[in-house]
Amino acid sequence: MSRRVFFVRVADRPGVLYKITSIFRRRNFNIESVAVGSTGAPDESTIIITLDLNDEEADTFARMLRRIIDVYSVEEHPDNGCVIAEPAIIRADAISDELKAKYSLNELMPGYYAYMGDPSKLENLIKELGDNRIKNIIRGGLTAMVMG
């Protein structure tokens, strides 16, 4: 098993995400993250899926994705070949300037902080703040770009 990132170019049309998530459901693939974004191309979206799969499962998953008519292309990359970022909004008691600087936090409103960056660094931040200081957190899922 290893973490893989799939970049799936799809038609920007209702129902496409349903077809893709149906694959996870039916084959019982455990997804880590799904992010949908536009790439600037008209009528087209890119879905970035991060999940742990072995080689055989990854191959199957890619074939099943390609079979969907609304899927234009599928690229699979190991996570170490990608630049990966994750956004999050954290509601917390006043965070020190030192911590804000360390994690490049942006205070959107008093007590609400935005994070954007390396997902493992986000994990560190959560640890450092601790459960009793975090009142609420929303993680936005991984977004990624292939390097090079």
Binding site: D59, T60, R63, M64, R67
Partner: peptide, 11 residues
């Protein structure tokens, strides 16, 4: 004709 069938059942 369908690539999805390859290695689906027999590996």
């Amino acid at each position: 004709i369908d690539p999805t069938e390859i290695k689906k059942n027999v590996k």
